[in-house]
Amino acid sequence: MSVRRHVMSVTVRDQPGALVRIAALFARRGYNIESLSVAQTHEPGLSRTTFVVTGEDAHVEQMQKQLQKLVDVIKVIDHSEGPYVDRELMLIKVAVRNPDDRVEMRQIAQDFRARIIDVARDALVFEVTGDEAKTDAFIEQMRTFGVLDLIRTGRVALPRTAPRNGAHGSNGAAGADDRTASRSRAA
């Protein structure tokens, strides 16, 4: 049983309570979520939730299947099953105690391709985008100056290759073969 981190995306219809259902499922089945982000997609009426979870593959697969069962859930993708890109956005406010700090901080920001989005006499707010390792490293660099506040969005991810229809979002991994099975039915 391999325990790893999984980045998963859930495409869900914008229905009242859809997010509650997802959150309730996590709570009820005891899944521990490290980060969660939700926003609308380019398709009207659809939102995408991205979350990070660490667990045994079988456990995560079960979670994927349970999510898939929710009526409002259109598609579940476990990005760890293939190549994907992911990013996180962080806003971080750092104390400026003397002018030298300010220069040094600007230099670090440049190295990290971070942007300064708010400038005050005693603080700077940076916008950092990247993978988690990068944001973590940036926080480390800023600690010496004094981190006043920060907020991270949690990861968002997309598969690298264009997903084939239903390639990930099928009824789960009940054997790769089941993915090609017809799954339409008039009641």
């Binding site: 219809r13 054997g175 099975a181 017809s182």
Partner: peptide, 15 residues
Amino acid sequence: DLPGYRPTVVGNARQ
């Protein structure tokens, strides 16, 4: 029209 709800009825032939 429930795009997220399509129970699998027909079993996979290979399985």
